[in-house]
């Protein structure tokens, strides 16, 4: 079966790739484009480690086909920092020790960024429900929730 040619934008970069018809966006990102920041924890949409944004919408990239990226704007963890300067969420995650092993961190950061774009001033409960699709097995979430809310506060004050 012949491969599909896809033209898309990833983290602002015009990108082209060839993929199989049944290949997930996550596999394309990781195996074809070398963007291994998105992780596969389950491959079934249950852990959030593969979270990316597609046209600003939070998506599990393991549940989307690579071919569906055609003409889209994809955002991954690799596009979160601007050059040397970390996104406030990235800074707060380090400051709050919101990661232990760090495997869930890229997905949680992408999801948390999407939360703050939709709701710049979330309550703790809103934060917990928004991030309920992102499993973290190490931290018990406490420091993650604090980091996200603290980043939201800083971002509100800065804007």
């Amino acid at each position: 079966m012949s491969k599909i040619h896809v033209t898309t934008t990833i983290n602002g970069d015009p990108t082209e790739f060839l993929c199989e018809a049944d290949e997930t966006l996550l596999d394309v990102l990781r195996d074809r484009l070398g963007l291994t920041g998105s992780k596969e924890g389950c491959g079934t949409g249950d852990c959030g480690a593969c979270s990316v944004t597609v046209g600003g919408r939070l998506v599990c990239s393991c549940l989307m086909l690579g071919a569906e990226a055609e003409g889209q704007e994809i955002g991954t963890i690799e596009g979160m920092a601007e050059g040397e300067s970390l996104h406030p969420l990235q800074k707060k995650f380090i400051e709050h020790a919101a990661l232990q092993c760090g495997i869930c961190t890229p997905g949680l950061l992408v999801a948390a960024k999407s939360l703050l774009e939709h709701n710049p001033d979330p309550t703790e409960e809103e934060t917990r429900y928004w991030l309920a699709g992102n499993l973290c097995r190490c931290t018990g979430y406490d420091k993650i929730i604090r980091a996200v809310m603290d980043a939201g506060k800083d971002m509100r004050e800065a804007s």
Partner: peptide
């Protein structure tokens, strides 16, 4: 190792 782990640079087993 914080920056590597919040930017997706850290290389885990499958990376």
């Amino acid at each position: 190792d914080g920056i590597d782990k919040v930017t997706g640079k850290a290389r885990f087993g499958a990376d």
